[in-house]
């Protein structure tokens, strides 16, 4: 980390030192003298050239303002709402500060929902990482140019179809009398019924988020120079050792980026639990959804919605501490 900062500083320092823009009061002699307006704009652009931060701020400020207003403001509203309550008789919002919503989060029902959601997100993330690595490896380091394009299209293709359509496709596959059951029946295992269960959700989540894991791992693997892998073999490492000691550590930022997608997307999703979930399939997402809709308890929904945010912050801090972004 420290290195990168140093390098940045050096670049910045170098740029300001070697700046060839004329200073104020010393216009370039070979240029025809510009009018007042011209000189003013030249001055502004010179000032901008010298002050990198100023340039960055001016360029970034419109999107930054947008981000602040839309994103942070709505988050803030949610945070505030979480400290309000709903009158159980009139169903009206009561604007009095209370910690009751958060206290309720720490009761058994909700703790087990939170725990189940985290466990599902973790299992889906690991599953996707395991599935994505060989695919990404093949795409990045073995396939020909053409094969790579085909595979990349194949990986991204599902993202063009509607999310709902893909989940329904899985329902058709997994439900009682579905394709999977029919297949197992044919090969003599007997009918299976895993539709509407946590297993079904695990399969559907893993399938739906897989492209989000493959793409960053592919990008990380593709950046690794061949010579590093050859150097490892040259120094006596067999293939598996090279994968373990060189390839995987260098692909780690890709895994980290992919896992942020799969983990957070699973944490917040409410459609798949609604459509594929069974008896024990209450997740943070669909409980929030139920509290907004059926139960009409917006404050509690807001309190519950803060949970995934806190979990993701912990997740990112943990990944950073583990060095997952070091070579990014």
């Amino acid at each position: 980390m420290g290195v990168r900062l140093d390098a940045d500083h050096r670049v910045k320092g170098g740029r300001s030192v070697t700046s060839t823009m004329p200073r104020e009061g010393r216009p370039a002699p070979d240029r025809p003298s510009p009018g007042m307006a011209g000189r003013g704009s030249a001055r502004i652009s010179a000032a901008l050239w010298r002050r990198t931060w100023l340039r960055a701020t001016l360029t970034l400020s419109p999107p930054l303002a947008w981000f602040l207003v839309i994103y942070l403001a709505s988050l803030l509203v949610m945070l505030v709402t979480a400290f309000w309550s709903v009158n159980p008789f009139t169903n009206a919002l009561e604007h009095t500060w209370t910690l009751a919503n958060f206290r309720e989060l720490f009761t058994g029902t909700y703790l087990s929902i939170i725990g189940r959601t985290i466990a599902m997100a973790a299992i889906v993330t690991v599953t996707d990482a395991v599935l994505a690595f060989p695919v990404a490896y093949y795409m990045a380091r073995i396939a020909t140019q053409r094969g790579r394009q085909l595979l990349f299209t194949a990986v991204l293709l599902p993202l063009w179809a509607s999310y709902i359509a893909r989940v329904y496709a899985w329902i058709v596959i997994l439900q009682k009398d579905g394709t999977l059951s029919w297949f197992f029946d044919k090969i003599g295992v007997g009918p299976v019924n895993i539709g509407y269960s946590n297993v079904a959700m695990w399969l559907v989540f893993s399938y739906i988020w897989l492209p989000f894991m493959i793409a960053p791992i592919y990008a990380a693997l593709e950046r690794i120079p061949d010579s590093l892998l050859e150097a490892s073999g040259d120094l006596g490492a067999r293939n598996w050792r090279t994968v373990r000691s060189v390839l995987l550590p260098l692909a780690l930022p890709g895994f980290a980026a992919g896992s942020i997608f799969t983990f957070s997307l699973t944490l917040g999703d409410f459609i798949t639990p609604l459509l594929v979930g069974g008896a024990n399939s209450n997740f943070i997402g669909n409980v929030i959804y139920a509290n907004i809709g059926t139960a009409n308890n917006l404050p509690f929904a807001a309190a519950l919605a803060i949970v995934p945010i806190v979990i993701m912050i912990c997740y990112l801090l943990g990944a950073r501490a583990a060095g997952a972004f070091r070579s990014m």
Binding site: P225, S227, L228, E230, A231, S232, D234, V246, P249, L250, R326, S327
Partner: peptide, 11 residues
Amino acid sequence: TVFQDYALFPH
């Protein structure tokens, strides 16, 4: 081998 690009392991 001493590679032309040195091929030092960056991590």
